[in-house]
Write a protein that binds this DNA or RNA. Structure first.
Length: 267
DNA sequence: GCTACGTTGCAGCTTACCTCA
DNA sequence: AATGAGGTAAGCTGCAACGTA
């Protein structure tokens, strides 16, 4: 990557050709998601002049030659490799480890100590091992948020960075919330369906009542035993022992009364 | 006490990578 | 082998709470 311009602002603006196979990233805007194209294309880059991390990351093309431990499956190796190669590139807000300088030192030392850097400038996709996930889940069950000390301890125990633990918990909380939202949504859907059915049933009942009202007074259709007189307003009401069997439950149907002429609110 | 400012943690949204059907 | 969908780690932004000068 040829940087032409080094100003005393500490920023480096580079314009030139770069191989797109290693996905040099512009810190101004993320590259598109499309597949990497082969060959050389014009590139514009902006970075800190003293930023060895980015420089190294952009230029260093290391293939993974780390020999597998005999106890590691290839998949395990891949996961561990990815975990240890946690990329700090373009991490704008690194708050877990003190000052910027400290962070930078950590980045470099981490890079140096970690042999799995594949050199691609693309965002590393860490896959947590099953053991790591299990422990994180266990911790999450105990407390869904971590205080700094808990975060540090957990990170040390998992051999991860505190930031990774923090991100995991953030995402975990988000997933939990999303899941709960989905459950709530399902519940509300069911409620809506039930109410719609009920509404439909009541409409139908109303239609039937209206039809009956046209032909004859309602009380004439009911057995005498089911008719009762409201003691307050002296109106006839029906008492259904099983309202579900008798759709015409007059007593349940509220009637209007005037508080001036009928002080009783019992019906 | 009030204000301005910096720090920190989190939520919400988004991006990018990985896996699998 | 290619591809689209889903899962998820990580980035970015905004906000609120808190401490400090």
């Amino acid at each position: 990557m040829g940087f032409d311009d080094i100003c005393n602002t500490g920023l480096v603006l580079g314009l030139g050709f770069s191989s797109t196979t290693d996905q040099k990233s512009s810190k101004i805007a993320p590259l598109g998601k499309g597949p990497p194209s082969l060959g050389f294309e014009p590139s514009l880059t902006l970075s800190l002049s003293g930023d060895h991390t980015y420089d190294q990351q952009a230029t260093k093309k290391v293939n993974v030659t780390k020999p597998l431990n005999d106890h590691q499956s290839p998949d395990q190796y891949r996961q561990d490799s990815a975990a240890s190669s946690y990329s700090n590139a373009s991490v704008k807000r690194e708050r877990d480890v003190g000052s910027e300088e400290t962070t930078e030192v950590e980045r470099v030392s981490s890079r140096v100590s970690d042999e799995d850097d594949d050199g691609s400038n693309s965002r590393k996709k860490l896959r947590l091992t099953k053991a790591q996930s299990a422990l994180l889940e266990e911790s999450f069950k105990i407390h869904s948020t971590l205080n700094p000390k808990q975060k540090q301890d957990l990170a040390r125990e998992l051999n991860l960075r505190p930031r990774q633990v923090e991100v995991w918990f953030q995402n975990r909380r988000a997933r939990t919330k999303l899941k709960q939202t989905e459950v709530d949504c399902e519940f509300l859907k069911k409620c809506c369906e039930t109410l719609t059915d009920e509404n439909r049933r009541l409409h139908k009942e109303l239609q039937e009542l209206k039809a009956l009202k046209i032909t004859q007074p309602l009380y004439m259709q009911l057995p005498a035993a089911t008719l009762t007189m409201c003691p307050s307003c002296e109106r006839i009401g029906g008492v259904a022992e099983n309202p579900s069997k008798n759709p015409f439950t007059i007593a349940q149907k509220p009637h209007f009364y005037s508080q001036f002429t009928n002080p009783s609110a019992a019906c």
